[in-house]
Design a protein around this nucleic acid. Sequence first.
RNA 1: GCCGGAGUGGCGGAAUGGUAGACGCUGAGGACUUAAAAUCCUUUGAUCGUAAGGUCGUGCGGGUUCAAGUCCCGCCUUCGGCACCA
Length: 853
Amino acid sequence: MRDAHYNFKAIEAYWQQEWQRQRLFCVTESADKSKYWILDMFPYPSAAGLHVGHIEGYTATDVLGRYKRACGFNVLHAMGWDAFGLPAEQNAIATGVHPSINTQNNINAFRKQIQRVGIGIDWSREIDTTAPSYYRWTQWIFLQFFKHGLAHVENKPVWWCPKLGTVLANEEVIDGKSERGHYPVERRALRQWVLNITAYADKLLDGLAQLHWPEATLRQQKLWIGRSKGARVKFQIPNGGCLEVFTTRPDTLFGVSFIAIAPEHPAVSQLTTDEQRAAVQAYQASIAAKSDLERTDLAKNKTGVFTGSYAMHPLTHEPIPVWVADYVLMYHGTGAVMGVPAHDTRDYAFAQMAHLPIVPVIQAEKESPLPFCEPGVLIHSHEFSGLPTDEAQERITQALVERQLGEATVQYKLHDWLFSRQRYWGEPFPIIWVKEVDYQRLLQCKNSPLHEFLPIQPVTYEADGMKFYAVPLTSQHLPVTLPKVDSYQPTEGSTTPLQNADPQWLNIRINLATGAIEPGVQGASTEWIEGSREINTMPQWAGSCWYYLRYLSPHNKDRLVDPKALAYWGTPDLYVGGAEHAVLHLLYARFWHHFLFDIGVVPTSEPFTHLFHPGIILGADGNKMSKSLGNVINPNDIVDQYGADALRLYELFMGPLESSKPWSTQNIEGVARFLNRLWRTCIGPDGELSKNITQDEPSDDSKRLLHESIQKVTDAIERLRFNTAISQLMICLNGFQKEATIPKQSMEVFLQLLAPFAPHITEELWHRCGRTEAIVDAPWPKADSALCVSRQLNIPIQVNGKLRGMLVVQVPAQETEVIQAAKADAKVAPYLEQKTLIRTVYVPNKLVNFVVK
RNA sequence: GCCGGAGUGGCGGAAUGGUAGACGCUGAGGACUUAAAAUCCUUUGAUCGUAAGGUCGUGCGGGUUCAAGUCCCGCCUUCGGCACCA
């Protein structure tokens, strides 16, 4: 292969094949080398193929990986597929073809695309969340949650999306629409699996402190967890019992002029007097008819109706009117609030609407209009008057505790994680539902293998007057694979496509003593209990919560992750992926990892200590790339036209990695020219190494340029400022070309610097220079800082901060000499005449500034 | 509404408080060519001036400093996030 012109197609194909053949990027634990683990958020293999945005991220990590490797690190860079999820299932519904077929096709296309841009991946570690050998461990982790009482079943109002035929987690609902597909959602009460993430709220919050993450992402997680300290306060109500409210401002307790409860609050009908019943019921009906979007519209005026009842203030014993108001949300706190109009904006608006008293109980430092929502000093608050907010909160809470009418508590915005979907293409739950009597028999059979994941508190649900108990299958039953079904069509209510599976799969019996399972209905006996399988599947997030761990020992059959591999690789040194996962994936995965830490599976509590979000690549029109706008760039077309190296180089040259930037096919010409110029510089018209590449010693100027480039490129890669690294490489090549000849040793160093960005062309030229090892395995060049300093410098001379002249000085320059010369400079002197020199600022090797009057 | 990021030539963007606009694109002029493409050279912030050179200039208004794109205060625009969370 001795092309005279830059035949990127042949070069790229050849080296990609060669790297594969040599298994160049396959790594193993190696005690004599430091590890560097670089992790990309693995993609969902969509039918649309890899996006230029994916490539930007993978190229960035590849550049870092190749660079670290040249620096002597043992670099782990693996790839996998987050392949469960709705689009494959929607396709299955439309075509009747099993989602796994479609998924495998997409995976093959994605893998090929990634290989085509030359990303250095250890493909021996490839994982696929839909492979039974993988989801066996997803199911195993679920069973651990189950065993530790963190997974249970609730019949609760959930977001139901009729179009998708499934429920969605809070996080998957945006403005009353599904995150995927933007279909309307509604509230429905359904039986659901729930993971108790709120039990980890504090750990997830506290753990943020040790993370090197973008500030905005840390803030988003913090706000999402939404920890608020406050108190629960009981207001006694007429027919006995209490109305409990949550407040973060117990210090304003004496300013309560009403209590507002959510329209769905269970105490509404008890509290409603006969005179008010019609009005309250009409109000409830009007709220029920509204969508959540309408209800939560901030701009709307406050509404509500009086129940006719009064609750008793816990400290003053005064009667407080109880209102029903839809600005109170049933799903937060207790679904009831104490209205303190003087010190809460919402309560203030409500009180004005309802003509309720507004009693100030907090004094502001200076005159402030009501509502005043800041801390201050208490007034009109009996013995607590005069106390500052923070002290009053403690004292008043204490007073409530003494009367058993309140307690200090912490409330989270974070809700438990809705963990089941009424769909087909997801991990089946390894759970069997049995009757109460059978569960009791299981409990008595103390040596049963089925106790492996049995929780202390049974997980149950009731239907048609029957109570069902969840029995966890054992490790030996895993994986529970997806059965074949005739129809993937989503269903109404709480049935799911798995309901259509073979009854032999749906109904099984389990041997209490041995844990053996047999298909179909065969009747119970002394040894066997009968049950039916859970027919929900897990949400798409499940598989992505722990995939990175599997990269460390992807083929291990006995363990989720090999502890030896874990001890060597630790946690990823850098995790790169989109900011759109700031709360969803990153919070869920942290939760799982914290839990795995608690049960001793992993040695650290946090999975991702260093995180980076690449910016989005927009269409040439500045809009987000989308089919409907017709501004989508297909990376395959770019690779065909300009080559993978040009694509890689351009994507990183566009701008800083973290910022969003528009695509410009015109600008890619620039980097393509740069690569062509490099080729022509190295290869002569005969296809051999150019005559201009010589064994000469480099000139001082070119030596300085090279070492300056080593320094700048190295520093830029370390700081992920790839765009400036590339510009320095362009400067370097421009400089080389000004010389009559280029020393081969300089060119080889230049190729090494460019290699992480444009691995194919540099590998080719490197070998044509006569080198035999892979360019990534040549040690990264070191800058000689002594060579970087120029012997001559241009020193700007300012007068009163304005540039007036330029001085050329020899480098070890004496201050007095420089200043003398500066004063004497023909362009500067006139500005100093007739003036008094007040001050002379001299910054060595930088500038001179004369301050005159 | 609240919280955060960002505003620099015709465009993408550079610039540890120290020569604003590196590098690239585009445009203009030129060389090579029968011609074109490719390539190479010159030039390309605005403005005044024949020129030397001057003045202005990093969203707007102030401030700190010998010196501000960079730091501080107050706005505007824009992009994200949250959105009655008590």
